[in-house]
Every structure is written in C-alpha cells, then in structure tokens.
C-alpha cells in the first residue's frame, strides 16, 4: 500500500467512509419505532382531559386470544395554580381484559368496582378511578402478568376521543403503542431502546396549517394546539423528565425557519406559543409570517450527555377550524431515538 497511487489512496478513504457510515447507520436506524397502527405491550394516550367543557372517552382493546392484565397510570400534569408548573400527580390502577375484549370508559366517570350492567364479575375489567374536573395529562398502560411484572404480549390497541360540551366537537386519536421486542427482563425499568420495547421517534413530522391560515374549504382561520409528553418517566421516584426540542418549519416556498422549546413532564400549548407567546403574529408558525397555508414542521428531541435517560417525546396535535369545531392531527415519525428512553414503574411494596 506504500506504493499505492494518490487515486487509490483516495478511493480507499471513500471505501472506509462508506463502511463507517453504514456501520454507524446500523446503530442509528432502528426497525421498530413507536406506532399507532399495530398492537403493543404499552399503550399511551398523551392527552386526557376533563374540565368544564371537555371530557375524554378512552377505548382499550385486547387483540389477543388470552386474558391480559394491565397496570395503568394516570398522570395529572395540569398547571399548579400557585407555580404554573405541571402538577405531575400519578394515580395507578389495574384492570384486566378477557380474550379479544374491548372496553370503554369516560374519564369523568371511570368504571365502578362492580359491573353496573349485570355482567359476570370476571368480565368486568375492574375499577377505573374517575377524574375530577381540572385534569389535564396522560394515561399509560403496560401489559403485566399474574405476578404484576411487565409482560411481552403485544396485545393492546386504544383510542381516545376528546369531546366538547359546547359545540360537541370530537377529536379522536389512536393511542401510541410500544411493542415488546422480546428482550423483556420483567423488571420495572422499561427500556424503550428497540431491545426491550420499541423506541420513541427520532424525528416527528407535523404537517399542519399555519396559525390563522384560511381553511381551504370554509375560509375560516385554522389554529393548532400541540401536546408534547417526554417518553422517559420515573414513576418510582416521581421525577419528571425535561427534554429540549428543536423545530424546523418549511413553508410551501421551501423556506426554512426554526424554533426551540423545553418540555418538562408535559406541555399543552398553541403552536405559536412555542416561540412567541406574547405576540403570536411574530411566531414562525403564524400565517402572517409564512405567507403560505400549510407547512411541514420537523421536531427533533435534542440528545443530552446524560446516560440512561433519553430525550424522546411523543406528540398529538389538534386543529381548530373555527366555530368551535376541531380535529385531531396525528404526526408522522422518522426513525428511532438515538438515546434509549426509560420508564420506571412504581415498585410494589
């Protein structure tokens, strides 16, 4: 090789670069990201709300032919009236679903300890606590076995419908599901790393109307609300996770602008508040700023130096079309998070 020509040396460099890139990519690209399409072993509703106007209908279904048990955690992240920070109050409960059994409850009422419709006790999923007015937060359910340890059964699908009292508007979204990847060590530390459970997304794509852009059909101004929830959560020590998000938004002229946001525990806010809460018209997400009706916003959780806690988030958006009517908007994902996330369940004692 000492006598190799400069051209050969250059080509050798290219080969090693290609090989190195491929190896790096193998590590970076994951095969089983979070999904909303297929059943999983963890099901996740990022926005559950009960207030004077809004209530939430939760649907859960066991898609397998065997009975399963679930450990579910409601997290109330409504703003603390004194500090404005999320409350992060956690309530957990256990229910069970028989083979192929669907169930439904309304957040404000839950499910009673005994069946109210005369069904046998063993067909009643169990007690689901009702949520008081003022609840704004998330619901996560994990499939567990008889020993109350996490199980590998990819059994669950779910839907949530936020329903308005005034106007009756419905915003229905599918629950996010995390699939067990077969490497379940049955402890209470759930690794979302594509080995124990599927990973959270590396990039979230939100294809949306810019705020106050005219709806193409009705002409009324459209506005978007986004809800972010970090994937990592330590329910044992009750430590909320903080994640930094980088936003790149592209308008129809391919012009790019950026913004950033830090999320601790839970964030539910109008899209324009990401970068300009005092004056939404100055936001990069405002129609007046962009000049086009729709945009593609790419949201990237910024990795940190800390080991053991990832920075992944999930997102659900709601679009208001004026006159109190709105729809839920499910984002798209690209790839699995580079840093694995961790959910620590509360320990039994």
């Amino acid at each position: 090789m000492l006598s190799a020509t400069p051209k050969i040396r250059a080509q050798s460099t290219v080969v090693f670069c290609v090989a190195a890139l491929a190896c790096l990519s193998l590590g970076a690209v994951t095969q089983a990201e979070i999904s909303t399409d297929q059943p999983g072993a963890i099901v996740w509703f990022p926005k559950v709300v009960h207030d004077a106007n809004r209530d939430t209908i939760i649907q859960l279904t066991n898609t397998t032919g065997v009975r399963i048990s679930l450990l579910c955690l409601y997290v109330n992240a409504a703003p603390n009236p004194n500090t404005g920070e999320p409350l992060w109050q956690v309530v957990d409960f256990q229910i069970s679903l028989t083979r192929q059994q669907p169930t439904v409850w309304v957040a404000s009422t839950g499910l009673g300890p005994r069946p109210s419709d005369g069904r046998p006790e063993d067909l009643h999923p169990g007690l689901v606590p009702p949520l008081a007015q003022g609840f704004l937060g998330e619901l996560r359910c994990v499939v567990i076995d008889e020993g109350e340890v996490p199980s590998s059964k990819n059994a669950l699908t779910g839907e949530a419908t936020v329903i308005d009292r005034a106007g009756g508007s419905l915003r229905k979204y599918p629950a996010f599901t995390l699939r067990s990847m077969g490497g379940n060590n049955r402890d209470t530390v759930l690794a979302l790393d594509d080995r124990e459970y599927s990973a959270c997304p590396r990039i979230l794509l939100l294809n949306h109307y810019y705020d106050q852009a005219p709806d193409p059909v009705t002409g009324s101004p459209v506005s978007t609300t986004v809800t972010f929830v970090p994937c990592s959560a330590d329910f044992d020590r009750a430590v909320p996770t903080t994640t930094s998000l980088a936003f790149d938004t592209f308008n129809e002229f391919e012009q790019r602008l950026s913004a950033s946001l830090q999320v601790t525990c839970f964030a539910d806010l109008p899209l324009t508040w990401v970068d300009s809460r005092p004056d939404p018209t100055r936001s990069v997400f405002h129609f007046a700023m962009q000049g086009t009706i729709v945009g593609q916003t790419r949201i990237r959780p910024v990795p940190t130096r800390s080991v053991g806690v990832g920075t992944g988030v999930i997102l659900i958006a709601e679009e208001s079309l004026g006159n109190g009517q709105s729809t839920a908007l499910k984002p798209h994902f690209i790839g699995g998070a580079l840093q694995g996330d961790v959910i620590v369940l509360p320990s039994s004692f």
Partner: peptide
Amino acid sequence: LSRALWGLALGVASLWIPGIAGATIGSDSS
C-alpha cells in the same frame, strides 16, 4: 484495485440497505 475497492463499497452499502429496511404499511410514517 480500484474496481475491487468500489465493489467492496457497494457491497457494504447494499448489505446495509436491505438489512434494515422495514416492511410494514403504516399511517404514521412516510
């Protein structure tokens, strides 16, 4: 040697792409 190097590079690349391609229809990815 040049051909061999390019062959190696393409081989590595071709091993990479099919090996990690997913194959599931979806509504939450492009």
